[in-house]
């Protein structure tokens, strides 16, 4: 682990409701400095719901979220982003009728990030050279893989202290997934802590050091990715067999 003694993010017994029903009952996990952590679980397990609640985009019905040492339950996504929690959403959620460059510029949300826009842009374009080529193109006209790269790059523009990636491989062809993960590897090695939500368990386990398994709105298992890789629980969470 790193020199700091406290986790960057700790989530304790998180509960989230959608109007009528509870999608997340009991989710707990932690991210320590420099760590890459994955949240695994089949579709509908509550991964996206948890991340959005942590970000403040959904109301929290119970439990505690601590980010950088402060209790942040009830804060807005704007406030969380200002503190350096950057979410790269499932489905990318770009601004399709803005250019690639404009999308990137908007990623620099804090004053600090905006002051460093130029440097961040260079970094992003070095990570994803295709974005530099396409910078004047409308984001909506990019291919799926390029859009995902743009979404990640847009997140990096905000100088994340914690980067939350929600299914970055969703709907991408295997070759493109490789490319995206190569870039994610570099991000992790640069020391940016990440939370990765994935369906493609294999890649996630290779990238991250630790992971949690969610099932039916609960964390049902945690451990190092090496432990998880051999776990029956993981298989049953995905395949529904015991």
């Amino acid at each position: 682990m790193s020199t700091t003694l406290s986790p960057i993010l700790s989530v304790e017994r998180l509960r989230v409701k959608y109007d009528l029903f509870e999608a997340v009952f009991d989710v707990s996990f932690e991210v320590w400095p420099g760590e890459a952590v994955c949240l695994l679980g089949s579709n509908g397990a509550g991964k996206t719901t948890s991340l959005r609640a942590i970000l403040g985009a959904l109301p929290i019905a119970g439990g505690r979220v601590c980010f950088l040492g402060d209790d942040t339950s009830g804060k807005s996504p704007g406030a969380m982003t200002m503190r350096g929690m950057i979410y790269v959403p499932e489905g990318r959620e770009l601004f399709p009728s803005l250019t690639v460059l404009e999308n990137l510029e908007l990623g620099a949300i804090t004053r600090e990030a905006r002051a460093r826009t130029r440097a961040s842009l260079e970094l992003a374009c070095e990570l994803f050279p295709i974005l530099a080529e396409r910078r004047m193109q409308l984001a909506g006209t990019l291919s799926g893989g390029q859009q995902q790269m743009l979404a990640i790059a847009r997140g990096l523009m905000g100088l994340p202290r914690l980067l939350m990636l929600d299914e970055p491989s969703l709907g991408l062809a295997p070759v493109v997934v490789e490319q995206v993960y190569a870039a994610l590897g570099r991000i992790v090695r640069s020391g940016t802590p990440i939370i990765l939500v994935e369906q493609h368990v294999h890649q996630a386990l290779e990238l991250c050091q630790r992971g949690y398994v969610l099932e039916g709105g609960r964390t049902v298992q945690q451990g190092s990715t090496a432990e998880l890789a051999g776990s029956d629980r993981l298989r049953s969470a995905y395949l529904g067999v015991n």
Binding site: S42, Q199, H200, V201, H202, Q203, L205, A229, G230, S231, D232, L234, R235, Y238, L239
Partner: peptide, 16 residues
């Protein structure tokens, strides 16, 4: 299994 869990996990835990 490989679609859900990735190729390397497609073997049974015992195999691994």
């Amino acid at each position: 299994i490989s679609v859900y869990l990735g190729r390397s996990l497609a073997q049974t835990p015992v195999d691994r």
